[in-house]
Design a protein around this nucleic acid. Structure first.
Length: 880
RNA sequence: GCGGACGUGGUGAAACGGUAGACACACAGGACUUAAAAUCCUGAGACGGCAACGUCGUGCGGGUUCAAGUCCCGCCGUCCGCACCA
């Protein structure tokens, strides 16, 4: 009799309401239990969830549910990264309010997430745009301000002309704003910054402790922080060549060992010395202006030719008063790194050698390979214009000759530390970092207000704690560009908290990355009256597994590492004062899909997957636009995006196949760190598997042994084999889930269900009992991945408990080892045969058995083997 | 330019240095059916052979090892990050 198909969409709603009504996912802070904090990067409420969210949140949910079954007290919260530009753009375009738009989106997306059946504790939900969240952020900010970790500075900033706001260095990608895509301009502005540079060394060093982070992310952060060890070195300027008041020039170098290869100095156009000369030299002033103009766009800067202007100043070599080198103003020297001045050693720096060739400066090799003829070749190549960067031995360098560059570095540092200009040493060791302070001011409305007041008399005055939060005014207008807070008629006009004189509220708001830099801490005690609750933090932190996209490798993940340190130093990170918020990080791949577009149209007109029909397969596969009947081009597989229209709506999939099907497909096949190609056939395959599980369970409950039947006395060999598979899979699936190898876990569950399907058609000693046992294990293991199907099957198997509340089953160790093993037999490393033998057989027994095999005898041709390698329970290799 | 990752059937992929291709998708053949859908069974890395079986096979070229997809060296290709950082 045909059984009824499992109606996923209908049953999923049922089980979701059961979970909700029993409040099974509420988490209580309970230090007596082992904890596990599973977190996925919270979404920006753009309006609807997309497949990337489905993948991300499915992975976290599987882990959270598994850990919960394994007895951990699991924290698995969700919230909204709710401030940001799109809300203001929507307000401008649609005449709505950012707040209304955001909260509507949150409601819609929350309902979508609920339809996925995620095991989230919604009682801990936070939205960063809610005053109940950002009041605490304002407190954190003021504490950081009091400690000098947040400060105001005048600086060159990245100005996004489209979003009309300042961007942090991390938010400029290839010279363009990360959000708007507009070419970023450099502008001088007063703005707020976080002193992330105070933690450069700690942030770098501690990367070494993050052994559960991807190597790639650690490396990216390492490069971003960019430590370099070198020397600050002061050069005297030759008398009469430099303007008054400039009798020395300080440079930073990481290659003091190449000091005897120096042939020029170069300084930034904005260097004080350059400005002093330019004041009297129109040609240089013109040159500097040109450099600055070219410098307005980072993209142009990359391609710019290296140019210099000889100032006529001469600098005196620290070891040889008679040796003078020219000082150039150069377009490639940056004012904000080191001292804005360098010495050029052309032979050992590719950029310097290009510069030297262009301006006819000497090129003196000072490092070369130890041995001829490599040395001769290297010197020749240097003179052809190829800088030598490898290790070697010092040459042409007086007292350094023969030393290694490393020893030469130390020797130069040692000698120059003793030399004096005035009372100061000529050179001191110095560590420089590429990492800049984090500019956090944004000239936008929809962000966390910076809680300070500008008073003519008192300067910058923090808003008193009792007056927090500084709340955004609801009645702002969005009908023109610029900052709505600036033009609000009343909001900014306040009296000074200190002297009560009329004063002006800060109208910049915080970068939204501030909001996401501590939300994970707030989740541990979302109702605390202080920003964090020390006891809750001490119990829950760090996040045991954080899951999100690689695009945050630097931005969010570096900011959060900094912010948690700053919270610690202002007393907000728990009594244990952990420094690292995320113990383990996993960066999942993207969801990609084929693209479709109309034929012969430029620019491309993209079509939605639902607008195209297909026939044929492989190379012969053709697409047709359904509406017009015209051919559609099947294009490359790309990240799902609105612009390419290669989108699949999670709602459609959930409504048609169910959430479990979408979840199962996301977990199958592709390793989670790689991209997954969304295909219709893959989804329907997942759907077929759901029905198959349903049929297995149906078969088990129909006429087979009942729930709780004791194990029969005899279990035949066929049944035993099924048991072995079930317990072996059980043993491995848990480990594979913990290791986030979901695709492998899925494959093993397929293997088990194949074994059960195969056994269902047969009869044998104890087989019915074994199949029921296997089916129950299958359902328990499937539970974290397809939780609705799991509950439905669990109930059908006769249980009136909830599967989600069942402990994780344990494999029987006795079933994990077989009495006999199959050993591969190789001759000269090539597999020739196999051998079935007792598991405990000795090496000698295995060797003897192997040598009797016909294939081996044939290969030996009567001679004794040269050597026989036996790896017990694995392999025999006969060397002839 | 610098740094990193990856490269396995038609496809997505598995594989503590130890039987390469588990599992899935697609495909082919068969069963059931008036038929289709659904389901079940079977097959399949390539080449040769009716078959038993043989030869080759994890981007290319070397090396280490009894044994290499896995370790080492050198290439090629693809992708990603950084890019005047002194």
């Amino acid at each position: 009799m045909a059984i009824e198909r499992y109606n996923a969409p209908e049953r999923e709603k049922h089980w979701q309401s059961v979970w909700e009504s029993r409040d099974v996912f509420r988490t209580v802070t309970d230090p007596s239990r082992p904890k596990c904090y599973v977190l996925e990067m919270f979404p920006y409420p753009s309006g609807r969830i997309h497949m990337g969210h489905v993948r991300n949140y499915t992975m976290g949910d599987v882990l959270a549910r598994t850990k919960r079954a394994q007895g951990f007290n699991v924290l698995h919260p969700m919230g909204w990264d709710a401030f940001g530009m799109p809300a203001e753009n929507a307000a401008m375009e649609r005449k709505t309010h950012p707040k209304a738009w955001t909260y509507e989106n949150i409601a819609a997306m929350k309902s979508q997430l609920k339809s996925m059946g995620l095991s989230l504790d919604w009682s801990r939900e936070v939205a960063t745009c809610d005053p109940s969240y950002y009041v605490h952020q304002q407190r954190l900010f003021l504490d950081m301000f009091a400690r000098g970790l947040a400060y105001r500075r005048k600086a060159k900033v990245n100005w996004d002309p489209v979003d009309q706001t300042v961007l942090a260095n991390e938010q400029v990608i290839d010279g363009r704003g990360w959000r708007s895509g507009a070419l970023v301009e450099q502008r001088e502005r007063e703005q707020w910054a976080f002193k992330i540079s105070a933690y450069s060394d700690d942030l770098l060093e501690a990367l070494g402790t993050l052994d559960k982070w991807p190597e790639k992310v650690r490396l990216m952060q390492e490069n971003w922080i960019g430590r370099s060890d070198g020397l600050m070195m002061r050069w005297k300027l030759a008398d009469g060549t430099a303007p008054a008041g400039h009798d020395e020039l300080e440079i930073f170098t990481t290659r003091p060992d190449t000091l005897f290869g120096a042939s020029f100095m170069a300084i930034a156009p904005d260097h004080p010395l350059a400005k002093a000369v330019a004041a009297q030299n129109a040609a240089l002033a013109e040159f500097s202006d040109e450099c600055r103009r070219a410098g307005t766009s980072a993209a142009e800067m990359e391609k710019a030719e290296k140019k210099g202007f000889d100032t006529g100043i001469r600098a005196v070599h620290p070891f040889d008063p008679s040796w003078q080198v020219p000082v150039y103003v150069a377009n490639f020297v940056l004012m904000d790194y080191g001292t804005g001045a360098i010495f050029g050693c052309p032979a050992h720096d590719q950029r310097d050698i290009e510069f030297a060739k262009k301006y006819g400066l000497p090129i003196i090799p000072v490092v070369a390979p130890k041995d001829e003829p490599a040395r001769g070749k290297t010197v020749a190549r240097i003179h052809e214009g190829a800088a030598y960067l490898d290790d070697g031995v010092m040459i042409n360098s007086h007292f350094l000759d023969g030393l290694s560059p490393k020893a030469a570095f130390d020797e130069v540092a040692r000698r120059l530390a003793k030399e004096r200009i005035g009372n100061e040493p000529v050179a001191t060791r110095k560590v420089n970092y590429r990492l800049r302070d984090w500019g956090l001011s944004r000239q936008r409305y929809w962000g966390c207000p910076i809680p300070v007041v500008h008073c003519d008399a008192c300067g910058i005055v923090p808003v008193a704690a009792k007056d927090l939060p500084v709340v955004l005014p609801d009645d702002a207008t969005f009908d023109q560009p610029g900052n709505p807070l600036d033009r609000h008629p009343t909001w900014r006009h306040v009296s000074c908290p200190k002297c009560a004189a009329p004063a002006s509220r800060e109208t910049d708001t915080m970068d939204t990355f501030v909001d996401s830099s501590w939300y994970f801490a707030r989740f541990t005690a979302p109702d605390a009256v202080t920003p964090t609750d020390q006891a809750a933090l001490d119990y829950w932190m760090p996040v045991d597994q954080y899951i999100g996209g690689i695009e945050h490798a630097i931005l969010h993940l570096l900011y959060s590492r900094f912010f948690y340190r700053a919270m610690g130093d202002t007393g907000h990170a728990g009594l244990r004062n952990l420094r690292e918020p995320f113990a383990a990080l996993f960066t999942q791949g993207m969801v990609v899909h084929e693209t479709y577009r109309r034929a012969d149209v430029e620019p491309p007109q993209w079509l939605l997957p639902t607008e195209v029909s297909f026939e044929g397969e492989g190379d012969a596969r053709r697409g047709t636009e359904i509406a017009t009947g015209k051919p559609a081009i099947i294009g490359s597989i790309e990240k799902m995006s609105k612009s390419r229209k290669n989108l699949v709506d999670p709602d459609d999939i959930i409504a048609h196949y169910g959430a479990d099907c979408a979840r199962w497909f996301m977990l199958s096949d592709s390793p989670p760190e790689r991209d997954v190609i969304w295909t219709e056939s893959g989804v329907s395959g997942a759907g077929r598997f759901i029905q198959r599980v349903w049929r297995i369970v149906d078969d088990v409950v129909g006429g087979r042994v009942a729930k709780g039947t004791p194990q029969p006395a005899t279990v035949g060999p066929e049944a035993l084999e099924v048991r072995r598979i079930a317990h072996r899979v059980l043993d491995q699936v848990g480990r594979n889930i913990e290791g986030l190898r979901f695709n492998v876990a899925v494959a093993q569950l397929y293997e088990l269900s194949n074994a059960l399907s195969g056994a269902l058609g047969k009869s044998g000693d104890g087989l019915d009992w074994v199949v029921r046992e296997g089916a129950e294990l299958l359902i328990q293991m499937l539970g974290p991945m397809m939780p609705h199907l799991g509950e439905e099957c669990w109930a059908r198997l006769g249980y009136n408990t909830l599967l989600v509340e069942q402990p994780w089953p344990k494999a029987d160790p006795a079933l994990l080892v077989d009495d006999t093993v199959v050993i591969a037999v190789q001759v000269n490393g090539k597999r020739r045969d196999e051998l079935t033998i007792g598991r405990t057989a000795s090496k000698d027994e295995v060797e003897a058995a192997a040598l009797q095999l016909a294939t081996v005898v044939r290969a030996l041709e009567g001679r004794p083997p040269k050597k026989v390698i036996v790896v017990p329970q694995r392999i025999v290799n006969v060397v002839v």
